[in-house]
Amino acid sequence: MTKTSSISQLAYTPGAICAITPLAMISQAVERGAHVKTLEKLIDLHQRWETSQSRKAFDTAIAEAKAKIPIILKNREVEFTAQRSRTQYRYEDLAEIARTVSPILASFGLAYRFRSSVEGALVKVTCILSHRDGYFEENQLAAATDETGNKNGIQAIGSTLTYLQRMTLKASLGLAASHDDDGKAAGMPLPINGDQIRELLALLKIVGSEKAALLRFFKIDALPDLPAAKFNQAIDLLNAKRAQ
């Protein structure tokens, strides 16, 4: 008579250790001549179990790595003067982030890579953060090409690409940059930073709104003149127009 075994029978036998892996259950099933449907269910169970285990290993590694990653130092400075105010801010570039986090991530079996594409006027970048056990997570952002500063087409794409790589990596790891209060220390209204300028430019392009109209509304000569305190208001105005 052909032997058949159910999953419940394989999971427990008198005197056996109760904790048993799906792989061990598959081995038992083969030995007992289990039906092919039982084997298929066990293989599916094994695959889901492996995914769960690798997810747990990934989460543990991320938590341990983040505990070791220091605040990223802002190693780049931007400074220019518009008609009504001076803009000055610091930021951490991609190379500084990589220099800080890569050795720590590697020590916990973590690595990252980027996937990018250009779709019309939008540049899309996906940061893929993976663990040596096979589990990975993705974080994607998109923005319009950076056409400021008389850049040519390739330079505009490259500028946005680098920016999105930096932002998706920071988002994937939940990184914080060191605080910079130079604007406040100088007694000046703190203007929006470079990231916020890019976000506004990207949203303006998506909405199809004219930058001049936004400048007139806030009574400024250029986007870098926009006070940081009014950034959310500007975003809300553009999103409201987008929803129309």
Rank of each mutant, 00 (worst) to 15 (best):
T87V: 12
L173R: 01
A234N: 01
S8W: 06
R84T: 06
V207I: 15
D146R: 07
I69R: 00
R115N: 14
A111P: 00
N75Q: 02
A156L: 04
H179I: 10
L173E: 04
H35E: 15
L190I: 06
A61K: 01
Q53M: 14
N150T: 15
I43F: 11
A222W: 00
I104L: 09
K170V: 15
K170C: 14
T160A: 06
L161N: 04
G120I: 03
M188C: 12
A63M: 06
Q83M: 12
Q9A: 09
I104Q: 03
K68C: 13
S130N: 04
Q83N: 14
P224M: 04
M167H: 07
T21Q: 15
V101P: 00
E138H: 08
G15C: 08
L161K: 06
A240Y: 08
S172K: 02
T51E: 12
M188P: 00
A106R: 13
L73W: 12
Q140N: 07
R166F: 03
L23P: 01
I154D: 10
K219Q: 11
L223P: 02
L45R: 11
D133L: 11
M25C: 11
T60H: 15
I220V: 05
Y89R: 02
A176W: 04
A29G: 14
C127W: 00
R113M: 11
T100A: 09
L161G: 01
A106Y: 05
R99T: 11
H131G: 04
C127N: 02
A156N: 06
I7H: 02
E77I: 09
H35M: 12
V118C: 09
L45F: 01
N152L: 04
S130W: 00
L42Q: 03
A144E: 09
A65R: 00
S27G: 08
A121N: 15
D133N: 10
E138V: 06
V30R: 14
A213G: 06
R86S: 08
K41C: 15
H46Q: 08
Q140M: 14
I62S: 05
E31S: 11
T21R: 13
I206N: 04
T145A: 12
V207S: 03
M167W: 02
N152I: 03
Q47H: 10
P70G: 06
A234R: 00
E50Q: 12
Q233R: 07
L39W: 03
R216Y: 07
K184H: 05
L215N: 07
L94M: 13
